[in-house]
């Protein structure tokens, strides 16, 4: 019995050694999720880890390292060795938005390698379907005539959708009252009850189907498939439009070989039927971008956000 165990251990050690000399990946990969378990970011990350493990043939360890609005988890990823064995889940806010308004422990432009994007979510500007507002023009006109009287909110204070909409109001010199919130469900209730007149949230589906709300515009690039007639903010000529993405990142200085392996893996995962079911379930849009294309998007959004922050004083 012991003999067998020793033999097995030896064989394992040998193959492990061989594999190590071989190509990436040869040992287990840690995927850091900078949020608590249970959110969509966590659910999709665990799904990706599960599928990537099947494709790459190594184990994945998913670690939730939450806190500081995702700064803590992403920072520990940025400080890890760039060997491809520590990667992390990222979303819009801690990468392209918050570093402009709050001091971040890492520099999103130099400290991370961006791997593939896998999901986008729509972040529309919605109002009650009661005829008060029928277009963004109506909203702007009301806000200008009644300074400070238009009350509105977004699911994440100082997230991309909030600041893109704020930039719109500031570009129009419209004074509004932004009410800080805790999450989309509460804001939807506040919208229906008249506490606010306008909301920018992503979980609006049931209320839209029930005819309680109306979509006036979309704050991320590309029109909202559920409201193809509603223009995007940039179509309307407003300064800021930010993609609301889910993606993976790794420490800066990752080798080309590892990046290529991940490009290929993420493509396979996002093409699968199971991935599509997951997207349906969490109401996301599967949207694959490889490392190069996604890096370009992050840079563009980061710069646009930086510019808008300066021009419109969004940090205050």
């Amino acid at each position: 019995m012991i003999k067998h165990l020793v033999k097995g251990a030896l064989a394992l050690a040998l193959t492990a050694g061989l594999a190590h000399a071989d190509e990436y990946p040869s040992e287990s990969i840690t995927l850091i999720v900078p949020y608590s378990p249970g959110g969509n970011g966590d659910i999709t990350s665990r799904f990706i880890a599960d599928k990537a493990s099947d494709i790459m043939g190594v184990n994945f360890v998913v670690e939730n390292r939450a806190g500081g609005g995702a700064f803590i988890g992403i920072n520990s990823c940025a400080n890890a060795d760039p060997d491809g064995y520590t990667i992390c889940f990222i979303s819009t806010s801690p990468i392209t938005v918050r570093p402009h308004v709050i001091e971040a422990p890492y520099d999103p432009m130099t400290d991370l390698t961006y791997l593939g994007q896998f999901m986008l979510s729509k972040q529309p500007v919605i109002v009650r379907d009661d005829g008060k507002f029928n277009s963004i023009d109506d909203v702007i006109a009301f806000a200008k005539e009644n300074p400070g009287q238009l009350r509105w909110s977004a699911a994440v204070p100082r997230g991309g959708p909030h600041l893109a909409t704020e930039a719109m109001f500031r570009a129009e010199d419209a004074v509004t009252t932004f009410l800080p919130s805790k999450g989309g469900a509460v804001e939807l209730a506040n919208l229906l009850s008249g506490t606010i007149d306008l909301a920018v949230i992503s979980d609006y589906g049931p209320a839209l189907d029930n005819g309680e709300i109306k979509i006036l515009a979309e704050t991320s690039p590309g029109r909202n498939p559920q409201a193809p007639d509603a223009p995007t903010l940039s179509e309307l000529g407003y300064p800021l439009e930010l993609a609301s993405f889910f993606a993976l990142a790794a420490p800066a200085g990752l080798s080309e070989e590892v990046i290529a392996t991940w490009d290929d893996t993420m493509k396979q995962i996002t093409d699968s039927e199971e991935f599509k079911t997951l997207m349906d379930r969490i109401k996301g849009q599967g949207a694959y971008l490889n490392s190069a294309d996604f890096t370009a998007r992050v840079r563009a959004d980061f710069e646009a956000m930086g510019e808008a922050t300066q021009t419109y004083g969004l940090a205050n």
Partner: peptide
């Protein structure tokens, strides 16, 4: 109204939406 009051309700909502059922007066 289709507003989930907590995470349990949100999970039930997502399971319903998959079936094409939108909770609400309709």
């Amino acid at each position: 109204f289709g507003i989930p009051g907590d995470i349990a309700a949100a999970l039930i909502l997502s399971a319903l939406l998959i079936q094409g059922i939108t909770p609400g007066p309709v």
